[in-house]
């Protein structure tokens, strides 16, 4: 895969900003075995800096989910390099990559994935579980995170006593509690009504204002357009990136 890492014009653009990126993809290709092999991602390069709020938008089947998995280190690319907060994951073992997820990445899923029968605090503190944080500290930081998402009054509630919007806020708190390099939110409003959608999007904007790096994966162009930067995916390749357009505009 080192063959693929030769400098290309696309990769040169992000490095111009300097410093360590929250997430960087270099010529990432992902193929799934088959006859012929399915190429779900085709030579994708993308840099997301700390403090950014980015929408990754594309229709279903565009390779969005594969991109999410690769960005979240849940799946390894066939070729190319994925660096999280400056750490090249290709050189790391599976267990080390799991540690990178535990410390550097927060996930928010469409289906919330809250564990039943567990209080909001316990669900959030699972975000610190695999870093080896002691239980007492986990609880304290979880309360902080829940207060940050506006659920300070729902600490002991199990998921089935919470509304859909509240559940997703618990999930956001869990993604934030370990102060990750970036949060990956996969269709975070996909299971919510319009009112809760508004509340969760406002929360995402607020967190962004506080400096949290967030990547929202969505098929909803209206949501994507409400975010500062949009990256469009089509047929496994980046179709457009509003940041690059802006830079080009500045350059001219």
């Amino acid at each position: 895969m080192s063959v693929q890492t030769t400098t290309q014009p696309q990769a040169a653009a992000p490095t111009a900003t300097g410093g360590t990126a929250a997430l960087e993809l270099h010529n990432v290709t992902k193929e799934f075995p088959g006859e012929p092999p399915v190429r779900a991602l085709d030579d994708v390069s993308l840099r997301i800096d700390h403090g950014e709020l980015v929408a990754v938008v594309g229709p279903s089947g565009s390779g969005k989910s594969t991109l999410l998995n690769v960005m979240g280190t849940l799946d390894r690319p066939t070729h190319g390099i994925v660096s999280v907060d400056g750490i090249d994951t290709a050189e790391r073992s599976d267990n080390e990559v799991a540690g990178i997820r535990a410390r550097k990445i927060g996930f928010v899923f469409q289906q919330f994935f809250l564990l039943p029968g567990m209080s909001a605090i316990d669900n959030v503190s699972n975000g610190l579980l695999y870093q080896g944080v002691p239980p007492r500290e986990r609880a304290a930081r979880s309360i902080e995170a829940l207060e940050r998402v506006g659920l300070g009054h729902r600490l002991q509630h199990p998921p089935n006593h919470l509304s859909g919007g509240e559940r997703q806020r618990v999930a956001v708190a869990r993604a934030l509690v370990h102060s990750p390099a970036f949060v990956l939110a996969d269709e975070p409003t996909g299971n919510l009504d319009s009112k809760s959608t508004g509340a969760v999007m406002k929360l995402i904007h607020d967190l962004h204002s506080d400096g949290t790096t967030i990547v929202v994966i969505t098929h909803d162009t209206a949501i994507a357009e409400s975010l500062p930067r949009q990256v469009a995916v089509l047929d496994g390749a980046l179709a457009s990136d509003s940041a690059r357009r802006d830079r080009e505009v500045v350059a001219t």
Partner: peptide, 16 residues
């Protein structure tokens, strides 16, 4: 399965 996936995303290893 969902819980297993979630825990892996939270940083659990296969051994965990």
């Amino acid at each position: 399965r969902g819980e297993i996936g979630l825990r892996r995303s939270l940083g659990a290893t296969r051994a965990h």
